[in-house]
Design a protein around this nucleic acid. Structure first.
Length: 152
DNA sequence: GCCAACGTTGGC
DNA sequence: GCCAACGTTGGC
């Protein structure tokens, strides 16, 4: 089993939205970055664990846990001109973009903030903390996953 | 293939 | 709202 971190803006779709969703699941549509696409299409497996991270908000940080409920499949929102994430370059016969489904597991007892994560040397090589990192999907080392959970 | 222009991300 | 960092686009 592998571990991941996925970013979402709470004003768009936060951890509470995931918890309130039907069957506590959602389709992770709209990722339009090739690195993130590759991970969702090729590497994320059903049952993998996911840190749910709130970005672009007052207190950025890890707020909850989710899991991969469905492995990579074509992001059909790219095919529909009415969709916000429409991409005329994605052909249904040869999809450019992929997504996974996530299932809510639980909220953390408290937000483990970005600022706090930066204070822990064992986490210093996390992708999340690297300068200029903008990936919305990234792997987390299992040791770092465990370490972060001890901070809760 | 180079690189300037542009758009987006996301912390602050 | 600002702006640094980065990815993408497109002219050449």
């Amino acid at each position: 089993m592998a571990f991941w971190l996925m970013k979402s803006e709470p004003s768009v779709f936060g951890i509470d939205d995931l918890r309130a969703a039907k069957a506590k699941r959602t389709e992770w549509e709209g990722v339009r970055n090739y690195q993130a696409r590759n991970m969702m299409r090729d590497d994320m497996k059903k049952g993998d664990r996911v840190f749910y991270y709130h970005s672009n908000c007052d207190v950025p940080g890890i707020v909850g846990l989710a899991e991969v409920a469905k492995e990579g499949y074509p992001d059909y929102t790219a095919f529909d001109p009415k969709e916000k994430y429409y991409d005329p370059g994605s052909d249904p016969q040869n999809p450019r973009w992929y997504m996974v489904d996530l299932r809510y597991k639980r909220k953390l007892k408290r937000t483990i903030t970005l600022t706090e994560l930066r204070d822990h040397r064992p986490l210093s090589n996390m992708k999340l903390l690297q300068k200029g990192n903008r990936l919305s999907v990234m792997p987390v080392a299992s040791k770092q996953w465990d370490y972060i959970l001890t901070l809760e």
